[in-house]
Design a protein around this nucleic acid. Sequence first.
DNA 1: AAATAAATCGAGCGTTCGTTCTATTTATGT
DNA 2: ACATAAATAGAACGAACGCTCGATTTATTT
Lengths: 256, 256
Amino acid sequence: MTKLAPLSSVADIDQVAHPPRQELNSYAEFLTGFPLKGEKLYATLFDRHAERIQTQKAKYAVANLEKILNATFEVSGVSGFDRMSLRDLSKRTGMSMGAIYSCIRKKEDIALMVADVVRLSSDLTRRHAMQAESVWSQIEQSIRFHLYASTLLQPWYFFLFFETRSLPEQQQSESKQIELDAIESFKVQIEAGIASGEFHSVDAAMLANTIVVLLEDWYLKPWKTQLLARSPAEQEQRIDNYYQSITKLVSKLLAV
Amino acid sequence: MTKLAPLSSVADIDQVAHPPRQELNSYAEFLTGFPLKGEKLYATLFDRHAERIQTQKAKYAVANLEKILNATFEVSGVSGFDRMSLRDLSKRTGMSMGAIYSCIRKKEDIALMVADVVRLSSDLTRRHAMQAESVWSQIEQSIRFHLYASTLLQPWYFFLFFETRSLPEQQQSESKQIELDAIESFKVQIEAGIASGEFHSVDAAMLANTIVVLLEDWYLKPWKTQLLARSPAEQEQRIDNYYQSITKLVSKLLAV
DNA sequence: AAATAAATCGAGCGTTCGTTCTATTTATGT
DNA sequence: ACATAAATAGAACGAACGCTCGATTTATTT
């Protein structure tokens, strides 16, 4: 897998799995450290899906992957992945069919790449939260990181949720497992806090599930809470509002 | 709109809008009074979509609509509405293309009928809750009725959520509005309880939203909470468990 | 039992889909 | 400047799609 013009990427998730131990307290801070963004995100896709991609030079592949995926989110966000034809995609990206088919082997490859990125992002979320010291700050950091990642990658998370059924069976159960893992993770943390007397006794499974569906709601229905925040300051504000809403709800239920 | 063999139906929602004032406390009880079930459900569709349906005799139309919609849920539940071909549908229902196209004018009509039923069901939910006397029992009855209706009509609710994008724009915003109305309704009830001193002061919008996404979770991911409950008693149990989980969570947050 | 109406059948229509393929253009290396 | 390799263009292909329609079967009426 030698690259002529190797861009920095996240081919191996473990490369970024152990960043310096730190608490995240703002979206801006998150953006500086998160590897799956901008050019690097597509370079990662190029590395991880090298066997599917005909295009050899990273320069072209990265630029075209970015065009293809952005166009996919724009078109399929309105009417779904199945209704998006590759001719739509060709028009929207300004690329020819040939150019598109040098970046992907089949239409389904696009969905596979999205699923891969969301899975990578979920891994990073889990790994980040594990660094926190107290049980409560593990919960806090999980929520924060998830909100941040799913804001930055909102179209990716959204796409995977709605188009999972377009994926092969194995990928389907994998992305279902991501959700179950997230619930289980919160449940374990809550139960640990209850066991140590730090939290009031509650239905841990229900609360864990509630947190996860609220996190899902954030990227599935941004029109409900995020509206048209476009300045970075405004966006920071909206995320923090939602973060505070969730954590207040949770902490009220867990207060001893 | 004269019918040769008129079955009982819910062509006009107001016909069933004012049943005797009563609290619902079990799924079994709900089932006895809810009009959108069994043969009546399809008779309602037949009445309300008469102009689309070529088939004239209710006997045939009702039987075929039932076959078509059940097959639609089975097939599109796996791979989505767009991927379900009418040849799939023909095989699954045992009907010919011609027979199918005497019940619908276009494939999209199937989705329109589903959207219509869910909207009817949501209307009934809202109307039922309005009958409750206290603010708290309005909230309780809203949750109960919604859980009951979305259990009975799970495939319909599920389908509308995932296939809204296959609908014309107007229907899309209508089904988005259903959710917003539900949130607003809970919000108003919570705020009323806070104003009267009945409830502790909380973020009413957030709590209302939380309730609604938890209700959505019930029919979107039945595998998480409903598993394979097949006996009526077991099902009653599972619904009640989830109902108790939601109301406990809510009442803890609202306790003065 | 004959006559009429309704429902069903399924081959076939035109279209559009995902995908392929070759000619051409553009970039790279010497 | 030339040679070579890579990337792009877009016409063309077969398959599958939604949908139609005349022929046929089934049900109802007289």
